[in-house]
């Protein structure tokens, strides 16, 4: 469990990071919190000739409000999402989701952008991003910046629409209206494990978001269920709709049918909670 040799880079600007990515292409990988990448390297499940450590890039750290959007820069630690009252006020779902990620030691080191860019289908942030309609901001070597919706960003297991020389620099979470309700629910074998199934959801007047995780190769947006929810369907009906076309993976932790059953139950519970939250907020 020792990684293969690699060259280590510690750039200090986004420009330098993109330059290194452009220079080394597929042989380079961005190192942020390292909570997924480092074990994979140690197990030699993956190897890269170049690791580009972005922890010293000041411009990748911190968060702020831009009009109706919470902009979280990519290298901001997960613990900030968990603890900062401004996050809970702007995007309550982020604050609710964060304690479900691993353990506090992991969240002290893990980053928001790292989790999104790693795109593990069972992780929480990608589903939160999809449920809320977030956008991901990517920088490329020439200085150009493009934004992708979360729906378009997540392509498959550990795969995103980012080009090899692009760097995820920020996630832009829309601040939903005051009269909104949010909930995230998951079942994991133990606290802190990747979810067997989970769901993040949000509701406000005229808009609903439901994204399941752990049940597909990407976060699974349940559009029919969103529509049913907006149309006034009950939680059980919304849940039934959300899992109708699910085709979850099977592994040593749960069969596909177990995941589907759990997912249906969680959607029902989350939708109920979010509605209650909306009622209280209103």
């Amino acid at each position: 469990m020792k990684p293969a040799p690699f060259e280590y880079h510690a750039p200090e600007t986004i420009h330098e990071v993109c330059g290194l990515l452009a220079e080394h292409g597929d042989e380079a990988k961005v190192l942020a919190g390292g909570q997924s990448l480092v074990p994979m390297l140690a197990l030699r499940l993956t190897r890269f000739e170049h690791l580009v450590d972005v922890n010293r890039v000041a411009a990748l750290s911190g968060f702020g409000r831009e009009n109706g959007t919470l902009v979280v820069r990519a290298c901001t630690r997960q613990r900030v999402m968990e603890r900062d009252a401004a996050i809970a006020a702007a995007v309550p779902l982020l604050a609710q989701a964060t304690p479900l990620i691993g353990h506090f030691q992991i969240r002290n080191r893990g980053t928001v952008g790292g989790s999104l860019a790693h795109a593990d289908p069972a992780s929480e942030y990608p589903a939160v991003a999809v449920a809320l309609g977030a956008e991901l901001e990517l920088a490329s070597p020439g200085g150009a910046v493009r934004r992708l919706t979360a729906d378009d960003f997540f392509v498959g297991t550990w795969t995103t629409a980012a080009e090899p020389d692009e760097l995820l620099v920020a996630a832009r979470f829309p601040v939903w209206p005051a009269r909104s309700g949010f909930a995230i629910e998951e079942v994991a074998r133990r606290h802190g494990d990747f979810a067997l199934a989970g769901v993040a959801c949000a509701i406000t007047d005229g808009r609903a978001g439901i994204a399941l995780f752990g049940v597909g190769s990407t976060p699974v947006r349940a559009r029919d269920a969103e529509e049913a929810w907006l149309a006034g369907a009950g939680a059980a009906e919304v849940a039934e709709s959300a899992v109708r076309d699910l085709d979850p993976p099977a592994d040593v932790h749960a069969t596909a049918s177990t995941r589907t059953r759990i997912a249906r139950h969680l959607v029902e519970r989350a939708v109920t909670r979010a509605q209650e939250g909306q009622r209280v907020a209103g």
Partner: peptide, 23 residues
């Protein structure tokens, strides 16, 4: 866990789950 061919499927603590203080 082994599969039918004898390949081990639980080779890290991600898959071989030990109880922790929360359990």
């Amino acid at each position: 866990v082994y599969d039918d061919d004898g390949n081990p499927l639980t080779t890290t603590f991600m898959d071989y789950l030990l109880p922790t203080t929360t359990e």
